[in-house]
Computed example of a mutant assay.
Amino acid sequence: MGKWMIYGANGYTGELIAREAVSRGMSPVLGGRNAHKIRPLAEELSLEFQAFPLDEHAAAQLEDIDLVLHCAGPFHVTSEPMIHACLSAKTHYLDITGEISVFEYTHSLHSRAAEKNVILCSGVGFDVVPTDCTALKLKEEMPDATELALGFDSDSGISPGTFKTMIQGLGLGSMHRKDGVLKTVTLGTQRRTIDFGRGSRSAMGIPWGDVSTAFYTTGIPNISAWIPMSKSKIYSTRLLGAAGPLLATDWFKEKLQGQVEKRIQGPDSSVRANSPAYIWGQAKNQQGIIKVARIRTANVYDLTVYGSLEIVRRLLIERIEGGYYTPAGLFGSSLVENLPGSGTFEIDTFYPRQ
Rank of each mutant, 00 (worst) to 15 (best):
F331W: 08
A248V: 14
G332K: 12
S46D: 10
Q257W: 13
F126Q: 03
T218F: 09
L303V: 05
G31R: 11
W4Y: 11
T217C: 01
T213K: 02
G258P: 13
S111A: 15
Q282W: 03
L330S: 10
S108M: 01
L240G: 15
L239Q: 15
T91D: 00
R238Y: 12
N10Y: 06
E56C: 03
Q190P: 00
Y235G: 13
I223L: 02
L172M: 14
L150A: 02
S275P: 10
G209D: 09
F163W: 09
H110D: 03
V22R: 08
R353M: 04
I220L: 08
M26R: 10
I65T: 07
G125W: 10
Q282H: 03
I158K: 00
A9G: 05
G322C: 07
T131V: 06
R353G: 01
E141Y: 01
L41R: 07
Q287E: 06
T297N: 02
I290P: 04
Y301D: 04
A293Q: 05
I320V: 14
R24H: 14
I347R: 08
K37S: 11
L256D: 09
V211M: 07
N34K: 13
Q259T: 12
S202K: 10
L330H: 08
Q354P: 12
A60W: 09
V77E: 13
E99S: 00
G258W: 12
T165V: 13
L87N: 07
L247Q: 11
R33S: 14
V211F: 06
Q190E: 08
I289Q: 07
M229T: 06
H57I: 02
S200H: 10
V185K: 12
I17H: 04
G307L: 00
T91S: 02
I317A: 08
V129I: 12
K231F: 10
V305I: 05
E141Q: 03
L54V: 01
K291G: 04
R112F: 01
R24A: 11
R19K: 14
L170H: 09
G241K: 09
T237I: 00
G188A: 13
P245V: 13
I65R: 01
A293V: 04
T146N: 03
D153V: 03
Q190A: 00
A203V: 06
T13E: 06
M26V: 02
A293K: 06
G266N: 05
G329V: 08
T217H: 00
S270P: 09
L87C: 05
T218L: 02
V336S: 11
K183H: 15
P352N: 11
K253H: 04
Y325G: 09
A35Q: 14
A58S: 13
